[in-house]
């Protein structure tokens, strides 16, 4: 009997002691399960464009993004043309986030006096710790060039001014610093120069970002043309730096393309980057929160 009592007493004391120790350094937070709230990868790119092409980033709901884009002349023109800075073409654009996953945008380029508009929709976001490994973004847009008709003798149709494009962006933020996306894109021009030419141009967009510091990043935007190449055009290639200063994002870059909408740079890039036909350009993006964000 005595033995049993001692054993029981010891057991009791041990249990009580362990309780006391637990109380000393207990992890209370581990007692409640983490709420399984979905988390998404954010900030894969600094801006809604890699450089020329759309990026996997969306505007937040109620955000207006005013974009002023410039492409200058060829650097190789030398000091006489101030390394191309004497000539500039520009695009003024307004993008707006209707929801976190749907944006619209309009723009006007001086090149070919062209208007453009697009719809951008993100059906799938990249998740963190589960969820989708990639983000998927769909873009569709149209461009209307408003130059006077070259040949007024023939019958001209308005539809001849119009081109469309369709794009699927599949992108992933691999790490804090590195993001990569591929974006097959097709441009359809209602009117092309020659009858035997293909109205459709297919390209594969490849966009990458490498963050250099918290507020600067190196970006590359490349669009090899896969089919339906406009004769005499080259693959648009741009590389440069994203610099963020408060509400502004400056994208300073070097590229061979002059067009600032999808139709213009995919079917109108005649310079060869590898032969040194490079121009300086910049995108300036300024965002304004114009509508209240959901709370």
């Amino acid at each position: 009997m005595n033995k049993i009592t001692y054993i029981l007493l010891t057991a009791c004391l041990v249990i009580m002691a362990t309780n006391a120790i637990q109380a000393q350094e207990q992890d209370l937070l581990s007692m409640v399960k983490d709420s399984a709230k979905k988390e998404y990868a954010t900030g894969a790119f600094k801006s809604s464009r890699v450089i020329n092409g759309q990026s996997m980033e969306m505007l937040g709901k109620g955000v207006l993004d005013v974009r002023i884009l410039h492409r200058f002349g060829l650097i190789s023109d030398g000091a006489k043309q101030f390394f191309g800075l004497d000539q500039a073409t520009m695009r003024l654009g307004f993008d707006y986030g209707i929801t976190d996953n749907l944006s619209v945008g309009v723009g006007r380029s001086t090149l070919n006096k062209e208007l453009d508009g697009f719809l951008k929709f993100r059906p799938l976001r990249q998740g963190i710790g589960g969820g989708s490994p990639v983000a998927v973004v769909l873009v569709t847009g149209l461009t209307v060039q408003t130059m006077p008709w070259a040949d007024t003798a023939r019958k001209n149709y308005f539809s001849s001014r119009v081109a469309y494009y369709y794009q699927i962006i599949i992108g992933r933020k691999f790490s804090k610093a590195f993001s990569l996306q591929v974006s097959p894109i097709m441009v359809h021009r209602n009117l092309v120069a020659k009858a035997d030419q293909d109205n459709n141009t297919l390209a594969l967009g490849i966009g990458g970002r490498l963050k250099l510091s918290k507020r600067t990043a190196f970006v590359v935007d490349y669009h090899p043309i896969l089919a339906g190449r406009e004769p005499g055009t080259k693959n648009p290639l741009s590389m440069g730096f994203d610099i963020e200063t408060g509400g502004h994002v400056f994208q300073l870059h070097f590229s061979n393309s002059i067009g600032m909408n999808e139709k213009a740079f995919l079917t109108g890039t005649t310079d060869d980057f590898w032969k040194g036909d490079i121009r300086f350009g910049f995108n300036l993006s300024r965002v304004f929160q114009v509508a209240k964000k959901k709370r």
């Binding site: 954010t42 900030g43 964000k293």
Partner: peptide
Amino acid sequence: AVLMKGFEFRKAMMQEHFNEN
């Protein structure tokens, strides 16, 4: 305990800068 990404700001840009920078 709090997940930093759960903080909501009035401006989407502030939220992005908060998380990123």
